[in-house]
Design a protein around this nucleic acid. Structure first.
Lengths: 235, 235
DNA sequence: GCGGCGCTTGCGGGTTCCCGCAAACGACTC
DNA sequence: GAGTCGTTTGCGGGAACCCGCAAGCGCCGC
């Protein structure tokens, strides 16, 4: 049996290899790739089981998984990632072919959970998803609560402190449209306090609700901050 | 040699006991306490080494540590906690007597880091602080950046989406005073973009800066949310 | 006592935000 | 082509926020 590991960070890659050695004694050959593009190429050599990071420089895990699954839908893919936010999940749920075995484990989980997931997904072909991720998936499956691409973008910009005018400029829409996005965000994130008596600052509350429900997380915010700084210096 | 474990959650307590068995073979006796009050009492029996959770129902770890250190400043205390936010750190940095050996490990850290910290602090009497915590401590040591109690409270309320009026009511100050707190928050959190050209929504940006710098974290936000809900239903 | 210092508070006005209303513009159906 | 539905956009007004200014307090050293 062959396993392919697709992971950016050499430290993490070494850790993964150890984990495979320990959890999957039946594995005969471990292939490695450093980014999504390499991963796709390696997968064509007939690998039935893949462990893959989601965010990588060259080509991210979502795109690589789509390619791999489009060529071999039976491939068992275990995603192993740091982050749990809507943006990645939205991508993920769209590309898993119906019935394909896959799994999602957070890098912060204890090792034995990774071992378990490797056995369950790669050997047994089960579907195994971290509890926290699953909560987000459920959230997304209800269209009344799922955020779409542009709502998410506006949420990020707002969370970073951009006023309507700047969001509009950055995303190429009118201020009024930005405000419409905000309205639907306020709605989906259940911003209003049931105690209707007193007022709320909806902008701040929306960010709080998103953080608490997991729709947004601090890592995503950090990344968005860097992107915004880039955008600022360039444009 | 005796070690005292002070921990609320029985599961975590069992985990700690295991860790002591593995990391500290020289320990002859392990005492346990379920809250800060018990912990203080047990410490009087002449325990030189303590591992303690920070948040406990009956009496929290900060208060217990203050008592213990006031009676026996040489006691070696390793704090083992989930959270890394300003509120606890502010308490902590005020009570560590100069030269007392202590440590701070996050519960999310891998076991071996806990083992290491136990040896370093409890046996060797070193000072060992998690990297992330240390960043926060440094921040606090610069008075121009450290948030004081009331600024932190206002930051939390604002992050939860309360408007000035409600923050004022809740914290018993005038709206103008709330705004003054916000001003100093904007200042300390470096809310303004260096690119002075464009506007900012300071409220949102302040929360973003606090989250990114670690002055605020999502756990603290969740707890604050529950407290606010309580406050809403009661008052 | 008294001048200085820091914190709190009220006032006022400029800015931003929130959002109902209505017109405009696809896209799709019949 | 007419009708419907969803989205985008402008307008306008009421509310919230940001913040300079100045008056009011308690606390300290002299």
């Amino acid at each position: 049996m062959k396993v392919l590991l697709v992971e950016d960070d050499p430290l993490h890659a070494a850790f993964l290899r150890d984990a495979v050695d320990q959890a999957l004694p039946e594995v005969e050959q471990v292939l490695t790739a450093e980014n999504g593009r390499e991963g796709e190429a390696m997968a064509r050599k007939g690998v039935g089981a893949v462990v893959m990071d989601l965010q990588m420089k060259e080509r991210n895990g979502i795109d690589a998984a789509r390619t791999i699954w489009s060529e071999r839908p039976e491939t068992r893919i275990l995603f192993w990632s740091n982050y749990a936010d809507e943006a990645y999940l939205r991508g993920l749920s769209r590309i898993v072919p119906p019935g394909s075995p896959y799994g999602y484990v957070l890098k912060t989980a204890p090792v034995q959970r990774l071992h378990l997931a490797m056995r369950a997904v790669l050997i047994e072909g089960q579907v195994l998803v971290d509890r926290e991720i699953h909560r987000l998936q459920q959230r997304q499956s209800r269209p009344a609560l799922a955020l779409n691409e542009s709502e998410y973008a506006v949420l990020l910009d707002m969370a970073l402190g951009l006023p309507d005018r700047e969001i509009a400029r950055r995303r190429g829409m009118s201020e009024r449209t930005v405000q419409n996005r905000l309205l639907s965000l306020y709605d989906k994130l259940a911003v209003d306090l049931q105690n209707a008596a007193l007022g709320v600052n909806k902008r701040n509350r929306a960010v709080a609700c998103a953080l608490i429900s997991g729709a947004l997380n601090v890592e995503a915010l950090r990344i968005a901050e860097r992107e915004m700084q880039d955008w600022l210096t360039r444009g």
